[in-house]
Amino acid sequence: MIVTKNLTRKFGDLTAVDGITLEVKDGEIFGFLGPNGAGKTTTMRMLCCLISKTSGEAQIAGYDIDDPEDSLKIRKIIGLLPENVGLYNDLSAYDNLDFYGKLYECPETQRKENIRHFLELMDLWDKRKVNVGSFSKGMKQKLAIARALIHDPQILFLDEPTANLDPEAAKKVRDFILQLKKEKNTTIFLNTHNLDEAQRVCDKIGIFNTHLLASGTPEELEESVWGEKTIIQVETVSEGIIEALNKLSLLNMVVDNNKITIDVSNGEEENPIIVNAIIEAGGKVQYVNRLSPTLEDAYLKFVRGLD
């Protein structure tokens, strides 16, 4: 559904987006993770045909983002929630949606149905006649999401969709994103800083800082950090225990006070052998814990180069 090849955007001497190559499949939720100023919004703007590319290629649903006629077709099938919601404060919630529904060429009946459906879904139906200027940030964010969906888009671009929402509303939006994927098979491109959110809703994640540093499923990214570790707390770490563990040819072992951290490739098979070796060496095992890398570890590793 979204394919890019060496997509690049420069602003003078500054390269904001440097040769991104990625593919987002039909019905997939793709999370675009990166620090501020990484070029996430610029990438999204290029994919939404809002700004031009400097070089490279990108297709949305088979349409070329660079072709003026294709650009109109792309904009018909996408919905965008930008970083700044950009609603008309002097218009009512209903008029805001009606205006965009007309521009997206929604037939009147469908437009009216969709306006009601999304305003009810976002708990804004009772406020439909109220000017948006009096709405809270959260209400505006919800209305902007409704606006992005007013024409039932095939692809949804969301830039920080839960940034201004309280936890309950944020959960509702996340659930709604998953519901859209499930019921309408909508492809979703999600820019976010929120690692927890990305992990909960995304099928695939791209970690990005001007260029794409890594991409894969959340599990693949986590595993790419350091696989799995086992932490064993013993009463006292003796020379005998160290000697016994060294004989097992372990990948990596760190001893900190009485805590032994060992890299394992297959914990279920290796852990009993390690624990047995410690006991045979006279050690008293107090706890055995499994330590798996998180998406945060993966993010920090790729963005900041931390191990």
């Binding site: 965008l80 950009g86 521009l103």
Partner: peptide, 14 residues
């Protein structure tokens, strides 16, 4: 001022 040009330009409007 209302940052509404971005969503407006994202519609199928020339």
């Amino acid at each position: 001022i209302e940052h509404s040009l971005e969503p407006l330009l994202a519609t199928p409007l020339t």
